[in-house]
């Protein structure tokens, strides 16, 4: 397989397409996975709590 323009183009137009689609699906599944909801809510609320001006011991 030569590393010419057509090869690069073919790779970009096939692999490039599918890995981005796969990644998009993966991200959406992760974001909406029901079990993750709790830790997301906790993370979103934790930064606005007032008791964070000291590291955990």
């Amino acid at each position: 397989m030569s590393f010419d323009h057509d090869t690069v183009t073919g790779f970009a137009k096939s692999f490039g397409l599918f890995y981005l689609i796969a990644m998009s699906i993966g991200v959406i599944v992760y974001a909406y996975w029901p079990a993750n909801r709790k830790q997301f809510d906790h993370a979103a609320h934790s930064i606005i709590s007032d008791d964070e001006d000291r590291p955990c011991p």
């Binding site: 990644m23 991200v27 959406i28 992760y30 974001a31 997301f40 809510d41 993370a43 606005i48």
Partner: peptide, 13 residues
């Protein structure tokens, strides 16, 4: 808290 934490993750990626 941020309106949608999920949306922040999706927009990050």
């Amino acid at each position: 808290p941020i309106y949608s934490y999920r949306m922040s993750i999706i927009s990050f990626w």
